[in-house]
Simulated assay, not measured.
Amino acid sequence: MLVTDGTQIDTYYRALVERASDYVGIFFVGVKTTGVFCIATCRARKPRRENVEFYTDFKDALDAGFRPCKICRPTENAHVAPLPVARAIELVRANLKVRISDWQLRQQGISPELVRRWSGKHYGMTFQAFQRMLRVNTALQELKGGKRATDVALDSGYESLSGFGYTYKKMIGETPRDSTVTNVILIHRFTTPLGPMFVCTTEQGVCLLEFVDRRMLETEFRELQQQLKARIIAVENDHTRQTEREIGEYFAGRRRTFGVALHAPGSDFQQSVWRLLQTVPYGQTSSYQAQAEKLCKPEAVRAVASANGGNRIAIIVPCHRIIGKDGALMGYGGGVVRKQWLIKHEQRYAEEISRP
């Protein structure tokens, strides 16, 4: 949303001039003279007040015609964990079976209050809940490996089986001894030039890759858990790390195809549409009509469009390359502005390859 309140604009402009880190992600400033938009801490020379516009969301700045600043990279760095938060997360991951207390964070020079605020805003949960989720996932893997519930509880830092059982049931939905859950969906958040994304994976591969502000995201999470009979837990694995690396290479223009394994549950028809999507060449577009004809079902344009809309794995399964027969961009789960950006991004790098 464009900020129009004069007092708010004065506050944001002062924060921009002072490079106030507290305002990173709070506003995005569009600079009329250069056509770029930035975050509060950008190191570039500060523009005059009359030459800027402030937005509360980077998508609004993109929609207004501004492009991301190459110095501060606003769509990425507005959502990156500050160094103290990153250190706290690494501390947890290095000690999966130990509860990291506020006192221990302070001993490391980390503000627990900062960690709590950032975790609540970006993960939608408290830092302690994030820790519990990691510990329960570790416990689930050990139970699946045949380890006794009592041993798992004590090894995970719980003083009693009852305390461990309560937490486990709250997260998984069943007690450790009665658990029939054999599948978990791991969810990891990372940043991209078009904003943060969630990647969800099973042991087989990626089952979801979406921008975090997708409107239907909660529905997709619920449907995935039902289809796979699994629970979603925030933690990383080889699939999440490979996805983050390959998506980073894609945005840098160094990757055109993906090697990460996929696990996309759906009907036979949906599966056929998603496989066909992956044959649309990098840097090119197709239409719903053309996709239907390739499936030998020219009358099924609406069904093809619906299957495209049901794709949960953005970019890797490139539904952004499908446009209307008349060239219109049509809908896109991540937003039409992102769709247009992705198409132009691919066309630019595809043209560079084709040049002699």
Rank of each mutant, 00 (worst) to 15 (best):
V3I: 14
G6P: 13
D10P: 04
Y13N: 10
R14P: 01
L16S: 04
A20E: 14
A20S: 15
F28Y: 13
V29A: 13
T34V: 09
C38Y: 03
I39F: 01
R48C: 09
Y55W: 10
D57E: 12
P68G: 08
K70G: 10
I71N: 15
C72Q: 03
L83T: 13
P84F: 11
L91M: 11
V92M: 11
Q104R: 14
I110E: 01
I110M: 04
L114H: 04
R116K: 12
S119R: 00
H122F: 11
T126F: 06
F127S: 03
F130Y: 14
R135Y: 03
N137W: 10
E142F: 06
G145P: 01
G145S: 13
A149E: 10
T150V: 15
S156H: 07
E159K: 15
F164L: 11
M171I: 14
E174Q: 14
N183V: 01
T202I: 08
V206P: 03
L208I: 08
L209A: 09
R215H: 14
T219Y: 14
E220T: 11
L228G: 02
I233G: 02
I233Y: 05
N237R: 11
D238A: 15
H239D: 04
R241Y: 06
Q242N: 13
E246Q: 15
I247A: 02
G248K: 08
E249S: 14
R254V: 09
V260F: 06
A261L: 12
P265T: 10
S267A: 11
V273A: 03
P281C: 12
G283F: 04
Q291E: 05
E293R: 10
C296I: 06
P298L: 07
P298S: 09
P298A: 09
A307H: 01
I315N: 02
P318E: 10
G324I: 02
D326P: 02
A328K: 08
M330K: 13
G331E: 14
Y332T: 01
G333Q: 10
G333T: 10
R338T: 05
K339N: 06
Q340N: 13
L342V: 07
K344F: 07
K344G: 11
R348L: 13
Y349K: 04
E351P: 00
E352Y: 08
R355W: 05
